[in-house]
Amino acid sequence: MKLARFQRPDVWNWSALDRLTDLRDDINRLFDGSFDGGTSDVFNTWAPALDLYEDKDNLVLTAELPGLKKDDIDISLRDNVITISGERKNEKKYEDSETSRSERFFGRFTRSLALPKTVDANKVKAAYKDGILTVTLPKAEEAKPRQIAIKD
C-alpha cells in the first residue's frame, strides 16, 4: 500500500515564504469574524508523518508530533479507522523580536488511517515521548493467525 503525503522539498526559497506568511496573515484578518471559521484554516494546517508497524499481536502507529502537549492530542477509533488530531500552539511570544526564519508549522492537524487489521478498540494504548506519539493497537482475536487442528 502506498500512502501519498505532502512532502516539503528540502530547500525553500525563504524570502518567498515570508511573503506568503504575510499574505496568509492578511487573508486571515480578512476572514476573521466574517465566516464561522474553517475558511481561515486553509493555509494553517499541517500533517504529521505517520508510520505503521506490525508484529504478532499488535499494530503500532507512530506520528511525528514535536512540540505538542499530551493534552492537545486526540485519538479516536471508529470502524477500524484511526484519527489523530490536535493543535500545536505557538506559546512563545517574544517582544521586540524580529523573525529571521519561520519554518515550523503551528495550528490544527488531522490525520486518519484505515487500519489493515481489525483491532480491539478497548485495549488501545498511547504514549507521547520526545515528540513522537505511539499508539499500540492490539489485534482483535479474529485477526490473529490461528492454527486449526484437523480432527481425523
Binding site: P66, K92, Y94, D96, E98, S100, G131, I132
Partner: peptide
C-alpha cells in the same frame, strides 16, 4: 527551524521528533 532575534540574543527552535 524558527529563528528570532530578540533584544539580547537569538533564539532557535528546531523540530527533531524522536
Amino acid at each position: 527551524v524558527n529563528i528570532v532575534e530578540v533584544k539580547d540574543g537569538y533564539l532557535l527552535e528546531a523540530e527533531m521528533p524522536g
